[in-house]
Design a protein around this nucleic acid. Structure first.
Lengths: 143, 143
DNA sequence: GGTTATTATATTGTACACAATTTAATTGTA
DNA sequence: TACAATTAAATTGTGTACAATATAATAACC
């Protein structure tokens, strides 16, 4: 087998599928004036409000170079607040605004709508998620 | 099940894994002074030389807004040439230079090295590739 | 207590990624 | 053959990504 053939790469379909799925999210998230990474930050905050920038980075595997400008844009849109932690002035606490919290209701149908556009049954979808998550955990441990 | 929980998203592990795998490629490709998308273009050209920008876009699912500057950088590095197609001056033909062709030899061990760092057997890797490719084909058909 | 090391975020610079628009060449058609 | 429609790249503008560095605050240590 020619390992340099594009068709024989695992990583290409991973890279391409990731972008294509993000593209499926785009029309759904545009209605909420959100990008996909911004939506991920909100998913996280709707679960656990009041977290530091590095907490978000740990969960989403993104660094401050990505998050700082992204969070500033979300602050501009009035979705979150960014305040220095008085107990440790190095840390910035990210907190939902009322408007950011309220957006959850409008996002409720996003996962279902997306799954519909994926055209994949529920079981194979869960199986894929577990498989990807397992590989992701494996890689993260190594690093 | 709460569909808005980060842990219940399929798309997040897809997004995160794609970036993590690209990060695994980085040290391998740095030796060749390549980024991952540039490496993909070379994989394609090593298979089929002399293609148009839109041919590359069709294969890699990237548009001219991404490819034009990327290909210009590859031209700067002396890996490819960009020439207008005399038969149709709208098209730009991308062709490997001798240097670009020669780089293939140095890249021969990249797939093997990467697979080693993925720490995943050959069969599950192929299974994952087929699964991702199937889903990718499905989505691309829809669009 | 002053100095050094560490930590958290911000900044800078480079490289994608993609929507929207522009430019130039080709095709289709009256 | 003119002229509108289409097509292929390029350009513009916005938003990630991430390496490398800078800045400021805290912790560790003498």
């Amino acid at each position: 087998m020619d390992k340099l053939l594009l068709a024989n790469q695992v990583c290409f379909p991973l890279y391409a599928l990731s972008r294509q799925v993000t593209a499926l999210y785009r029309p759904l998230l545009e209605k909420l004036d959100l990008t996909y990474p911004q939506y991920l930050v909100l998913l996280l905050l709707w679960e656990t409000d009041r977290v530091s920038v590095s907490d978000i980075g740990d969960r989403l595997l993104l660094d401050s170079g990505t998050l700082t400008p992204l969070l500033k844009r979300m602050e501009q849109k009035g979705l979150i607040s960014r305040t220095r932690n008085p107990a440790d002035e190095r840390q910035v606490t990210i907190q939902l605004t009322e408007s950011g919290r309220a957006l959850q209701e409008q996002a409720l149908n996003v996962p279902t709508d997306l799954q519909a556009s994926l055209n994949l049954g529920n079981e194979p979808l869960i199986a894929l998620r577990v498989q990807l998550q397992t590989l992701l955990d494996q890689i993260s441990v190594i690093k």
